[in-house]
């Protein structure tokens, strides 16, 4: 790729008009191998090589922190305290034996026997799955109404929704704690779910409404002609057609809730704390004892990373579908 994209610039790099060349030279130029560009090509190949090396270094630099934490999660804490993960990795590479480098999954085994960690991982699921489903459902309904239904004050209402997109969640912490106390859900997963749903809605409604509005009018009218009720149209036409937008919204919302620390810290209690809050507390209790923290962090990362890798492809299809229409 680097070679081909360098071609055109090879020609233009030397602006002075070229002397008349023999026919075979012109032919070779047409084939994409201009004689005069040779020096330039070498330079650009070399440049391309440097770029590649640079990018490899950057990629390694980007992977390094996570990789280091992963290695730390495999080592007993006294090992981690005594030598760096790079030393252990080197030992592993040179000896090719996990035992020589003192790698094992013992930390994971012991952390999976820890009720608090496992319980809070489950809490994370209990919070993020409903919060995601609810946001998608509720916002899809509202977005459909904003896009295709006529009602007084529609534009004003939607402007308010647009305005609410950037409201910092800090504004809601104190009052909503109050509201949840009144409702009797403070300190439970329900409180966290409701808060995430409420603060996720403005963006969700905005995104879906903008997508739904692009659904061809004919399709909706045809469905109406066939005697479809609004709910049927919503279910049979809008939701399937809006699937790309809904899917990406769901994934955003899911990752956002799964990774949240602040909201859960304020609204959940000891029994309902998700993994982020528990890990944060463990950090305070055990300081930097990596044998607890590192595997815990890795466990909490598995799902987001899986979602990230699994849906990448799906995302692209959604994006394509969206932009082709």
């Amino acid at each position: 790729m680097s070679a081909t994209s360098a071609q055109p610039s090879a020609d233009s790099a030397q602006p002075p008009p070229e002397p008349i060349q023999p026919a075979e030279d012109l032919a070779s130029q047409a084939m994409g191998a201009p004689k005069r560009g040779l020096a330039y090509r070498i330079v650009s190949r070399l440049g391309g090589g440097i770029v590649q090396v640079l990018l490899v270094l950057v990629a390694m630099f980007w992977l390094m922190p996570t990789f280091g934490l992963f290695i730390a999660s495999l080592r007993p804490s006294q090992e981690s305290a005594g030598s760096g993960w790079w030393t252990a990795t080197w030992e592993f590479i040179t000896s090719l034996s996990a035992s020589a480098a003192a790698f094992s999954f013992d930390n994971y085994v012991s952390i999976l026997a820890n009720d608090r960690i496992v319980g809070s991982l489950w809490n994370t699921v209990l919070i993020s799955v409903p919060a995601t489903l609810l946001v998608v459902l509720i916002s899809a309904g509202a977005a459909y109404a904003f896009a295709w239904m006529e009602f007084p004050g529609r534009d004003w209402l939607f402007l308010i929704v647009v305005g609410l997109i950037v409201v910092p969640i800090q504004v809601g912490l104190i009052p909503d704690a109050q509201v949840f106390r009144v409702l009797g859900v403070f300190g439970t997963v329900t409180a966290a779910i409701l808060f995430h749903v409420a603060f996720g809605l403005p963006f969700a409604v905005f995104l879906l409404r903008n997508f739904f509005i692009g659904i061809p009018r004919d399709l909706l009218e045809a469905a109406r002609m066939d005697g479809g009720k609004e709910f049927t149209i919503f279910r049979k036409v809008v939701l399937p057609l809006g699937w790309p937008a809904i899917a990406s919204l769901a994934i955003f919302q899911f990752l956002w809730v799964w990774n949240d620390l602040l909201v859960a810290q304020v609204f959940t209690g000891a029994e309902s704390a998700p993994i982020t809050v528990t890990l944060r507390e463990q950090m305070r209790e055990f300081g930097s004892s990596l044998d607890v923290i590192a595997p815990g962090v890795f466990l909490s990362m598995i799902v987001p990373l899986a979602v990230f890798f699994a849906f990448q492809r799906y995302f692209v299809q959604g994006v394509l579908a969206g932009s082709v229409k």
Binding site: T66, G68, L69, W258, N259, L261, M301, P304
Partner: peptide, 15 residues
Amino acid sequence: MAISFLAAGVTFKMV
């Protein structure tokens, strides 16, 4: 981008 700020924070605390 996919991992939590907490995970990223712990990672960099170690760095």
